[in-house]
Write a protein that binds this DNA or RNA. Structure first.
Lengths: 230, 230
DNA sequence: AAGCGTACTTGACAATTGTCAAGTACCAAA
DNA sequence: TTTGGTACTTGACAATTGTCAAGTACGCTT
């Protein structure tokens, strides 16, 4: 484990205030690996042997049932994923695949559990991190239960617009087929949803989306802090 | 706080191994209250001042958006709810109302946060409890994203059948309009979904549901351990 | 026991979303 | 630059789900 990698891990709030020796202990047996795009890292119901940290690239967490597949969430650097499964020590709840070539740090889940037992501060940080994860899924769950496909797209666009600096234009961070799956619809439906938003000033140009009537879009989207954040 | 109430709290795994003095400290300022049916306990975005423990009765956690309302989950005794919000100390993510007359223990959230800071064991238990909550929402999220309404109902019925002892008949634990909302559909649609399941041996008699062709129902439902449990 | 309110059911219809098929656009490798 | 594969879009249609309206059933109060 190189020093620069340790610094990256430390940049995550989960590990930020961990004592040096405990962090070293966690990283024993960890390894950094580069995966090409479209590689399945693990499948749901596999035993959760590792906590993952995405250093760069992009990862999709997805699930299958009844010959259907759906994107649960996207992971962007730098972030951990499958923390809950690693902490509990049972099976993964979702499958994961790289969407691009990605560098990923894999930490033995047993190290994480040992740290939780030994390091009071880490246990507290884990509580906060898990609560944040929980919050995130609840938001996604509300969104799909209470909004139509067009509303979900409109709110997604507004969130991206805020995240990308309110420039009146955004670049979609993923392929539209993945975005469709994330928003709980088919690619064909996403195309139509974009068409529906055209009268609200939404202009799609490849992976860029331009906003010409933000007020109208917001009126349609009716964003809520409890779902879309502050 | 009466001794018998303390025993009830101790029966929850979250508090089971807590030292007596810490448990006493948590219960300072707590109070047990009986609410009639259909009372809103709190609304989403209210500051999370309490951790709730349902002693008896039944509670619905729900959310609103765009003039729509949806049941997120049901709480049955004895169980805590809104642990994540209480631990983090921000706003509730969902609203709560009683479905029946219910006895509820309310513990100041600040006590919970203090315990997490002071009591290493409690922090660990909180991690496990939060992970379980997370797991639960992920399951619900998968279910609504990957299954049709009929499939969700079929799997719900099979889960209830298992929980109620595989007797070939179950009693629905909630009104059908609540069940419909929980499964992400309208009451009219739930009626039709039950009708769709009739050829699969599902006979509805008021709040009872009888199963005459369990194999056929299972073939339709295609239950998955990762969604419906073991 | 009667009456009332609410839940539930059913039918007809509308809106939304999914499926299939065909064609276009785009990127990457040869 | 050409070529091939994949993503994307569009149209026509099917399936699912939601809405509205009416009627039935059920439980609770009087």
């Amino acid at each position: 484990m190189r020093e620069s990698q340790k610094e990256i891990v430390r940049s995550l709030s989960l590990f930020s205030s961990m004592m040096e020796e405990n962090l070293d202990a966690i990283l024993v047996g960890s390894f950094l690996q580069r995966f090409p795009a479209s590689v399945v890292l693990f499948s749901e119901s596999d035993p959760a042997d590792f906590l993952y940290i995405l250093i760069n690239g992009q990862v999709e967490l997805f699930a299958n049932a009844n010959n259907r597949e759906g994107t649960m969430t996207l992971i962007r650097p730098i972030a951990t994923f499958v923390l809950a499964s690693a902490l509990v020590g049972d099976a993964y709840q979702m499958s994961a695949r790289t969407l691009e070539s990605s560098q990923i740090l894999m930490i033995p889940a047993e190290n994480i559990r040992a740290a939780m037992r030994k390091d009071k501060n880490f246990a507290q940080k884990s509580v906060l991190e898990l609560a944040a994860c929980y919050h995130g899924v609840v938001r996604a769950y509300k969104s799909i239960k209470l909004r139509t496909a067009v509303e979900r797209l409109a709110n997604y666009l507004l969130v991206q617009h805020r995240r990308q600096g309110e420039k009146g234009v955004i670049t979609l961070p993923v392929e539209k087929r993945i975005l469709a799956s994330m928003l709980g619809m088919r690619p064909e439906n996403l195309s139509r949803a974009f068409a529906t938003l055209k009268p609200y000033g939404v202009a799609v140009e490849g992976t860029d989306v331009r906003f010409q009537k933000l007020n109208d879009l917001q009126t349609l989207a009716k964003p809520l802090e409890s779902i879309d954040g502050p």
